[in-house]
Design a protein around this nucleic acid. Structure first.
Length: 107
DNA sequence: CCCCTGACGGGCG
DNA sequence: TCGCCCGCCAGGG
């Protein structure tokens, strides 16, 4: 049970299926915070230390691993590749194909 | 209390 | 198609 907006976001991220990715905007939209994508990203920044949150499956609208630097080195990319996602130049190949939107697919 | 910033996104020129 | 600007929520100085 989410106590605050942060937990709410974390819950959604945890629901992202393995081998799939989602975007900050998609999560924000799902939570009714349209345009609050920044807020989502910020929440992720606060999830450091919580290994139960697959933050590596959250990228920006372009499929770019914007938060890669927060994982250290190519950690984020490797985690994604482990799940069968191809990453090229910090960008997910066939991003749309792996994209998972809670609004349309979780429903 | 005001201003700035951030792992973002959409609109407009 | 590319680039600039504004809007979004909340915390920190």
């Amino acid at each position: 049970m989410p106590e605050n907006a942060f937990d709410d976001i974390y819950q959604v991220v945890k629901l992202v299926p393995l081998g799939r990715v989602t975007t900050y905007g998609a999560i924000a939209a799902y939570l009714g915070r349209k345009g609050g994508a920044r807020f989502v990203g910020w929440a992720m920044n606060a999830c450091h230390g919580d290994a139960s949150i697959p933050a590596h499956r959250v990228v920006n609208r372009n499929g770019v691993l914007t938060g890669k630097a927060f994982f250290g080195g190519n950690r984020m990319q490797e985690l994604l590749e482990q799940e069968g996602i191809v990453v090229k130049n910090d960008t997910i190949v066939d991003f749309k194909k792996h994209l998972w939107k809670p609004l349309t697919e979780l429903l």
